[in-house]
């Protein structure tokens, strides 16, 4: 469904910054793949190239066999900054409906899709509200509803849960899994959170530091049904997490000598996680060197 071959992106400017060197992987139809990598490794650049928002300087992206030159039809994107990706002058309903209008979906079907999507994310009652009247987690639910109402073939998510508190994050993760299982939509999710990548993904793509290549393409052999408590405390989950973590640490160590301003900026802008986590996660956070 999604093929990324030899993808490279060098930003122009003084000397040029090579963000992506050579990225190759593919996502089969109906799969859920998480991309994880050290801070500043160009995850968002990668996602923007896939979404057709950035033109790569090398290689190509294909969606359903067609080369991406601009935002392809049938692709929905959920951004991290929910506050900036919903239209503040529209109600929740209008926000979800607008892309369907542009897609020329007839009005009765549009109403149906909007209602289904809002019900699916548990916001049927908030249709008449404006996004800024809702909490952060609810706003991101609206963005997710907008994406699924669009009935995309491919769903891209750029750190979708990074800006909400930990409890909301867990809820939204499970919401995503439920929706994904129900709709079977091909999903590519970018995250900096190793736990989240392992918990959500059927596969995890580990990226190296910039200039970025695929460091590892890891199949997650956990049972298909996942649960915040049992899955996260399963020994296999811990093993996979430790493995990915080691990979990223290795990638970071390799790049430690030549950190760029971009890396530091990315680290500083990492959103805070507000709710205290139980001990094992605390331990992990202290050791994985994220700056908070």
């Amino acid at each position: 469904m999604l093929e990324i071959t030899g993808l490279g992106k060098t930003y122009e400017g003084r000397g040029g910054v090579e963000a992506l060197r050579k990225i190759d992987f593919r996502v089969d139809g109906g799969d859920l793949v998480c991309v994880v990598g050290p801070s500043g490794c160009g995850k968002t650049t990668l996602l923007k190239c896939v979404a057709g928002l950035l033109t790569p300087t090398a290689g190509e992206v294909r969606v359903a066999g067609r080369r991406v030159t601009g935002p392809p039809p049938g692709m929905a994107v959920v951004f991290q900054e929910y506050g900036r990706s919903l239209f503040p002058w529209m109600t929740v309903r209008k926000n979800v409906e607008l892309p369907l209008r542009e897609k020329k979906v007839p009005a009765p079907r549009r109403r149906e899709l909007v209602e289904e999507a809002l019900a699916a994310v548990g916001l049927a009652d908030a249709a008449a509200a404006h996004p800024w009247q809702l909490s952060g987690g609810m706003q991101q639910r609206v963005a997710i509803a907008r994406a699924i109402a669009y009935e995309p073939r491919v769903l891209l998510m750029d750190e979708p849960f990074a800006a909400v508190d930990a409890q909301t994050r867990a809820e939204l993760e499970d919401l995503l899994l439920t929706l994904w299982r129900r709709l079977g939509v091909t999903t590519l999710l970018v995250t900096h959170d190793i736990d989240e990548a392992v918990y959500l993904g059927r596969r995890v793509i580990v990226l190296s530091s910039a200039p970025t290549v695929v460091q590892e393409d890891l199949a997650v052999d956990l049972p298909a049904a996942r649960d915040q408590i049992t899955t996260r405390s399963a020994p296999r989950f811990a093993e996979l997490r430790a493995h990915v973590y080691a990979q990223i640490k290795q990638a970071k160590g390799r790049a430690a000598g030549d950190r760029t301003a971009g890396d530091r900026a990315a680290e500083e802008s990492a959103p805070p996680r507000q709710v205290p986590s139980p001990a094992p996660r605390d331990l992990k956070r202290k050791t994985d060197g994220r700056t908070r």
């Binding site: 923007k48 979404a51 057709g52 935002p71 929905a76 951004f79 990706s85 002058w89 607008l98 542009e102």
Partner: peptide, 27 residues
């Protein structure tokens, strides 16, 4: 006009007069 909002509009196929009406002018 907010960059993320503009990207969102592009992804969901908002262009031409519709982009003007629903995105640029309100923003």
């Amino acid at each position: 006009v907010d960059e993320v909002l503009a990207d969102t509009g592009r992804c969901f196929g908002l262009r031409g007069p519709a982009r003007l009406r629903h995105l640029v002018l309100p923003a």
